[in-house]
Amino acid sequence: MALVTERIKTEVKEIVYDFFADECEVNKSEISDQTNIINDLDGDSLMFLELIEIFKKKYALEIELKTIGKYAIKNPVETIGQLIDMQILIIEHENRILELV
């Protein structure tokens, strides 16, 4: 289990906010942890996929997209805040994330 420091948490949040601001062409200041990804930003599952890929590479994570998919089915993500929390859990637990379900 990886140790997720405060620095990593801040970094994850920064990347997620920047990502959705870029992809959805909105000002970063308009996004908050409560922002709904689909309803407020018109986001989609492919964006989610791309974001996961970024984190996989950045933190050299050993986790399959399918595993994340299974976790997400049981723990649906709707808001930016939920997505950040899930990403931190993925970095922390990688393929063992399903043990949390």
Partner: peptide, 8 residues
């Protein structure tokens, strides 16, 4: 640019 900013 995102790949650059995230250090990839």
């Amino acid at each position: 640019l995102r790949s650059l900013k995230t250090g990839l």
